[in-house]
Design a protein around this nucleic acid. Structure first.
Length: 556
DNA sequence: GATTTCACGTA
DNA sequence: CGTACGTGAAATCC
């Protein structure tokens, strides 16, 4: 924050134009391309930070070709401060000036009960709240723009103060979340490279040929279903998509299960041929319905790039989310994600990131020592005197709140061997169970729902226990990704780019001749980002990095 | 028509 | 009674 010039970009109502402000007033107004080039020149000559009320402004600048390096997104800062996703201007303002959220004026309903529209008056009401007229699409009016930008500067300053007071790391988390807000705009623009012929082939294997009509589609579905239904004479009319009917069918052939979930059916795979057939049918049906021809048509563009909507932190603990199946693409389809000619993909996976993050956030010195090796679970196993597989389950159980199962005894030893880390998790769980919000290492507020029953309270406890680890891991991951992105801009011709982010995995597309340099870059940026993020904690982070042509290659 | 339940893909 | 997400189909609730 310090030492950099804050500039604001706001939308000019009723026009495609954007306006650029600094503390002393208007700098420029014009089409997004013009403002993008003005901001680019400013970025080149001085240290600036760009802020906006809404990410859509950043989206326009990015689409105009601007590479935004430093920014402050007041919605992201607000989400960090308050938790959740909602971040309309009136909420952002109210929180920034420390007024109660519940007392703010209702948005205009656009009917006779609205108070007469305030025209030309101040945007801040006498009671300190933002005038509801700013919530409409065409408001504030063009006359109010300078004031709108001035209020934005005030919000940035107040948010920074609040974050500073909250935690030593929170301001840098806000900067990272703001950068991520721009990065997801780039992900949405660029998409993931697809080899259409290969993906088409894979979808055909699972879902059959593309249906030519509704009738044809129904016929293909029925053909697929018959393969399974034929195995149980007398039940050829079963609707396989209806769990109740499937349950009945299974009971009829002597498979006694309480529901039809795959993991439960796994044990009965060989009791009757229909079980195996049904499990295979389910896999194909998943691809046919969710990742089939409709999905291809909707999300893969004519340029053979798969695009979906992204959020920076909509997950309960502040993880990113993505639509269009980008975060849940079935493994069988992954060969369809492939580097275009002249480029390669570099795939980088963080190794055992959650326990390593736990070592940082809990400041457990003994647990931190375990992170010095590539295989953390092997060290834990040796220290606890158990098998590696048991140690792994014990560590994961501690972070997920599982108390039963094969690792129950090992959990007791964990408490003795790593008391600080375990106490950190227990404290987070206890807070959640009491109905209190928790905070991540980076300062994100994680609100919790109030529970009516003890069982619900325990579920909240498991959520907060996990959220402090999962959320902190997300913070490290975003900081790393931004460091990678910045380094890619500096490398070679600067065309390398991140195309997919998957909680602990980056998929990067670079020209072939940059492949080796990118591998080096990924390792170095991880060391740098982890050192900055952890404040120099003695915790090691590792990445598994591979140069590949298809996403399916080189998994761990 | 909107919401919930079941199911399952990913980390 | 292990966490989080997105998605679709059917059942269920207005």
């Amino acid at each position: 924050m310090r030492g950099s010039l804050l500039v604001a970009v706001v939308r000019v109502p009723g026009s495609p134009s954007l306006a650029l402000y600094r503390d002393r007033g208007l700098v420029a107004e014009g089409r997004p391309e013009e403002i993008a080039s003005t901001v680019a020149k400013l970025q080149d000559t001085s240290a600036i930070r760009v802020c906006w009320w809404n990410r859509s402004v950043a989206t326009e600048l990015v689409r105009a070709g601007l590479r935004i390096s430093r920014c402050w997104d007041v919605q992201e800062a607000h989400r960090l401060l308050c938790g959740g996703w909602s971040a309309a201007p009136d909420e952002v303002w109210a929180n920034a000036v420390a007024l109660p959220m519940s007392e703010r004026p209702a948005p205009l309903a656009g009917d006779l009960f609205d108070e007469p529209a305030q025209v030309g008056g101040p945007l801040v009401r006498p009671d300190g709240y933002l005038d509801p007229r700013v919530l409409g699409d065409e408001r504030p009016s063009a006359d109010d723009l300078a004031e709108w930008a001035e209020l934005l500067f005030q919000v940035v300053a107040r948010q920074a103060e609040q974050l500073q007071a909250r935690s030593p790391t929170a301001v840098s988390t806000a900067l990272s979340e703001s950068g991520t807000s721009v990065l997801i705009t780039e992900l949405e623009r660029d998409g993931v490279p697809i080899e259409r012929a290969r993906l088409t082939e894979l979808i055909t294997q699972a879902a059959g040929v593309p249906p030519e009509s509704e009738r044809h589609a129904a016929q293909l579905r029925a053909d697929r279903d018959d393969v399974v239904r034929r195995l149980v004479p007398g039940r050829e009319r079963t609707d396989l998509r209806n769990p109740a009917q499937v349950l009945e069918l299974l009971h009829a052939v002597g498979v006694k299960v309480e529901d039809t979930r795959a993991w439960r059916l796994e044990a009965h795979r060989h009791t009757h041929p229909v079980v195996e057939a049904l499990l295979g049918w389910r896999k194909a049906e998943r691809i046919a319905t969710t990742y089939g021809w409709g999905w291809l048509q909707a999300h893969v563009g004519p340029d053979d790039r798969l695009r979906g909507p992204w959020t920076t932190c909509d997950g309960g603990a502040g993880r990113m989310t993505a639509g269009a199946g980008l975060h849940s693409l079935p493994a069988p389809l992954r060969p369809g994600v492939a580097a275009p000619a002249g480029t390669v993909l570099v795939r980088a996976d963080l190794g055992q990131v959650e326990p390593r993050v736990l070592a940082v956030v809990s400041r457990d010195e003994e647990f931190a020592r375990a992170t010095h090796e590539d295989d953390l679970y092997a060290v834990v196993a040796a220290q606890l005197g158990v098998e590696r597989s048991i140690a792994k389950i014990a560590v994961l159980s501690a972070m997920y709140g599982q108390t039963t199962g094969p690792a129950a005894a090992a959990l007791e030893r964990m408490k003795r061997t790593y008391p600080t880390a375990m106490a950190y998790l227990d404290a987070a769980a206890a807070q959640g169970q009491r109905g209190e919000a928790v905070q991540t290492y980076g300062g994100r507020h994680i609100p919790v729902t109030q529970s009516a029953t003890a069982e619900q309270a325990r579920a909240v406890g498991r959520f907060t226990r996990n959220a402090v680890v999962q959320g902190a891991a997300a913070e490290l991951f975003k900081a790393w990704a931004l460091t990678v992105r910045h380094a890619l801009w500096q490398q070679g011709d600067g065309t390398g780019r991140i195309v997919l982010m998957l909680h602990d995995e980056l998929l990067i597309e670079v020209p072939q001749n940059q492949a080796d340099d990118t591998v080096t870059l990924v390792h170095h940026t991880l060391t740098d980002a982890a050192r900055r993020w952890s404040g120099g904690a003695p915790v090691r982070f590792v990445a598994d990095v591979a140069i590949i042509h298809r996403w399916s290659e080189a998994k761990g």
